[in-house]
């Protein structure tokens, strides 16, 4: 924000692009007002906004948002811990890489949601099932990124560490981990997106109390305004989590820009 004010040209452009966005919303309102699509299916932005405010006032939307965000974060944190730990173990050992990389490459393009039927048959329609699919799905991008980051250490840094007589542990901690950090953070960003997607899928299938299930119910009972309010909230959740991730990246990778 500070940067915006320092550069007036950028600020004006941002305001202009904001008005373009407002114009699109106006077009949406026009579509709804002219009844190009039946109001049963497409609410105008006014009705979606009213449903959003109403739901927040009554507290039920807040409750659902909390449930969804909580689920997404638990799954993501679990996946991050597992992914970085396993990825580091595989990444620093050449032997482990040779044995495991083909298997990992085979799993990589697999749709994360394909694990859902297996999770349901093992765990039933429970919170544990939803958590399992979120963390399992978000695990892979982080694991693969971490493996890549640990494997791609500049060879001269290895020579330096040998010359300094560093122990294996301090090589990992002082050289390999900082070197892998950009990859890990990029993996964590993808993992966060995957978590949000799988949270929605898990809630819909497992009928868990959350925003994903709420919008499914709204669609089934033709409450299109509530449905669109939920979709808007999902956009906001996605936007905020992405911004927080960028902030963390900028903060943790300061040393890189300076260098």
């Amino acid at each position: 924000m500070k940067r915006l004010f320092r550069n007036p040209g950028r600020f004006i452009r941002f305001i202009l692009s904001f008005f373009v966005g407002a114009f699109f919303i106006y077009l949406w309102q026009l579509c709804a007002d002219l009844r190009l699509v039946s109001p049963v299916f497409l609410p105008g932005p006014d009705r979606a906004w009213a449903a959003l405010v109403n739901g927040l006032m009554r507290g039920e939307l807040g409750h659902q948002i909390l449930g969804t965000v909580e689920r997404m974060l638990y799954g993501w944190v679990l996946a991050s811990l597992l992914g970085v730990a396993l990825g580091a173990m595989i990444g620093i050992s050449k032997v482990a890489r040779e044995y495991l990389t083909p298997t990992l490459d085979w799993i990589r393009p697999m749709p994360a949601s394909a694990i859902v039927p297996v999770a349901i048959s093992l765990l039933g329609l429970t919170d544990a099932m939803v958590l399992a699919i979120i963390s399992f799905g978000a695990l892979w991008p982080m694991l693969l990124a971490t493996v890549h980051g640990f494997a791609a250490v500049e060879p001269r840094l290895h020579e330096v560490s040998r010359a300094l007589g560093l122990s294996r542990w301090s090589v990992v901690w002082k050289i390999a981990l900082p070197n892998a950090m950009p990859d890990i953070l990029a993996g964590m960003r993808i993992g966060l997106t995957v978590s949000l997607i799988l949270t929605v899928v898990g809630e819909m299938l497992g009928s868990r109390d959350g925003l994903g299930f709420a919008i499914l119910l709204a669609a089934r009972s033709f409450h299109s305004a509530d449905l669109f309010a939920g979709v808007i909230l999902f956009g906001i959740i996605g936007y905020i989590s992405g911004q927080l991730m960028s902030l963390a990246e900028r903060h943790l990778l300061r040393w890189r820009q300076r260098g």
Partner: peptide, 26 residues
């Protein structure tokens, strides 16, 4: 690019699966 920045950044973060109920309804 400058004019569309806000609209793109507002639409892009919507997770695609959240549109399943919308597509189901429509």
């Amino acid at each position: 690019n400058d004019l569309m920045e806000f609209s793109i950044e507002a639409f892009r973060p919507i997770p695609s699966v959240a549109l399943i109920p919308v597509a189901m309804l429509l």
